[in-house]
Design a protein around this nucleic acid. Structure first.
Length: 275
DNA sequence: CTCCGTGCCTGTGAGC
DNA sequence: TGCTCACAGGCACGGA
């Protein structure tokens, strides 16, 4: 399940290989990802256009095309973008193949078909999903100060539910949220308003360092995630709580527990992250 | 406002 | 062995 670090790795790699390349077409094996557009209309919009830039906001990938159209891709849980330098047969779960003039191909694969494609005209971007998201933790405006201000507006919420809310912080998913809270020593069920200044500081530092470590490890491949070459990341080897129920806490030696918080399976150490 | 359940999908793995 | 079923979780939406 790609979260911010995984999407960041994908975007960095895609930029290197696809910037300046021209779409010659796209074919579909299923249409679940198309939001409010027919496959024919979709292809018409992108055919012949050059990729000018590729960016990320939260978990959204944005392709800026030469006709001022923006292609937004969200991989949700099991979506993958696989780059091939030449023609390759589609695989079992390939839903779309983008063809380039250079002969390269970009395959979109998705076992569960939850992923989405959208097209926006440039002047409509301001009302697109990615523009309505909160702060991206890797952006310059994500500071201890802006983080603290957002927390002040949500005193009654559980901290885990807040961290997952894309309206405030864009890019956190279940894995990096649990890992961040463990590293900060904060119980996922704590109310935002109960956090001390010291804890807020620790949470801010843990959030950034956990995401950056995830990026440096090229993501978490606990189940589905692969990079654009099909390679696994390494961060699953460094997980301290996620999916480690019953295993020993690497800090205190006690048992890692699982409970449902904010509707998600949540892993934590009851000793290192007291209520 | 905040939480919770449901739907979208299909593979995995536990238990019988 | 083969079946059922809970579970995985990002996001939208409706209801409490």
């Amino acid at each position: 399940m790609p979260e911010l670090p995984e999407v960041e790795c994908i975007v960095r790699d895609l930029k290197e290989y696809l910037n300046g390349k021209k779409f010659t077409g796209v074919s579909f094996a299923f249409y679940n990802m198309l939001q409010g557009i027919s496959p024919e209309a979709f292809e018409k919009e992108i055919r012949g256009e050059v990729i000018r830039d590729i960016k990320r906001k939260g978990k959204y990938i944005l392709f800026f095309l030469s006709n001022d159209i923006i292609l937004e891709v969200h991989l949700r849980m099991t979506g993958r973008l696989h780059y091939y330098p030449g023609p390759v047969d589609p695989q079992k779960y390939t839903g779309a193949v983008f063809y380039f003039e250079s002969g390269d191909e970009l395959h979109y694969q998705d076992v569960r078909k939850f992923g989405t494609f959208r097209l926006y005209a440039k002047q409509m971007l301001y009302k697109s999903k990615p523009c309505l998201l909160g702060l991206d933790p890797l952006a310059e405006n994500f500071t201890l100060n802006s983080f603290s201000e957002m927390l002040k507006k949500n005193p009654g919420r559980m901290i885990k539910s807040f961290l997952l809310d894309q309206k405030y912080i864009a890019g956190m998913g279940n894995i990096y949220t649990d890992e961040t809270l463990f590293r900060a020593g904060i119980n996922p069920g704590r109310k935002v308003g109960s956090l001390s200044l010291k804890e807020i500081n620790r949470l801010f530092e843990s959030l950034l360092s956990t995401l950056k470590e995830g990026i440096n490890c090229r993501g978490t491949s606990i189940s589905d995630y692969r990079d654009i070459w099909g390679q696994e990341g390494e961060f699953q080897k460094r997980l301290k709580v996620y999916r480690r129920e019953g295993s020993n806490c690497l800090r205190c030696g006690g048992a890692i527990r699982r409970k449902v918080v904010a509707g998600r399976g949540t892993y934590y150490c009851p000793v290192c992250q007291p209520l």
